[in-house]
């Protein structure tokens, strides 16, 4: 009886530790815009080589960054979901994106802007670095190149991809909006005026 109790306590401790580790990992993630304490969180599963993701970022999310994330209302997390079976350069672009996120939100937004804006260009030949060298200053570019050597970047992208599969993401862009204690999954490109109505509804008490 006593040994059974011990096993139960041990099992509970292991479960608790795993949960704590998961929470720690979750909170360790950084918002590409906004703060972790923001009342609403948007997690976007995106692929830098996907045309719909380009449209969603340039026409919708950039305004969300300006009007909601910068005001501390929304935390935007961009997760990499490169569809390598149809987009041969998506994984490499995701590596640059994740490396830039490691440098900070400002550098990430410069890299994301450049990658999405010049998607037609680098998608053809996979020449990503020239595109980024015109978007970043020499110091940031140097740091980015250094960060690209970090082997944990690939692991992070794999983790994002596995998370996408676990959350049944099958298309990009797919985003999850968490607010008022609920998480909603939305697939596809949504125009800014429509998304902002939903965000406002979550931000009103």
């Amino acid at each position: 009886m006593r040994s059974a109790m011990r096993y139960m306590i041990l099992a509970l401790l292991i479960c608790g530790w795993q949960q704590a580790a998961a929470i720690a990992q979750e909170s360790a993630e950084s918002c590409a815009g906004g703060k972790l304490t923001s009342p609403v969180k948007i997690e976007v599963f995106s692929d830098f080589q996907c045309p719909s993701c380009r449209e969603f970022y340039l026409n919708t999310m950039r305004q969300v960054f300006t009007n909601y994330a910068d005001a501390g209302k929304v935390c935007v997390v961009y997760r990499e979901f490169p569809l390598t079976n149809i987009h041969p350069h998506a994984f490499e672009a995701a590596r640059y994106g994740h490396a830039a996120l490691g440098l900070g939100p400002r550098q990430w937004s410069l890299v994301a802007d450049a990658l999405f804006s010049a998607q037609d260009k680098w998608s053809k030949d996979g020449q990503i670095e020239p595109v980024l060298s015109s978007a970043l200053n020499a110091e940031d570019l140097g740091k980015l190149k250094e960060k690209m050597k970090d082997p944990s970047i690939e692991a992070a992208i794999t983790r994002d991809t596995e998370m996408a599969r676990a959350r049944q993401v099958t298309a990009t862009p797919t985003f999850f909006v968490t607010g008022k204690g609920k998480t909603q999954k939305i697939v596809g490109v949504v125009q800014y005026p429509i998304l902002s109505r939903f965000l406002d509804s979550l931000l009103t008490p």
Partner: peptide
């Protein structure tokens, strides 16, 4: 029950302007 979510679903078809979507 979830009108804003349905607005986003209609919008994702990329067929209509925001007022028509609403």
């Amino acid at each position: 029950r979830e009108p804003f979510l349905f607005e986003m679903s209609v919008d994702s078809y990329q067929l209509f302007s925001p007022p028509v979507v609403i």
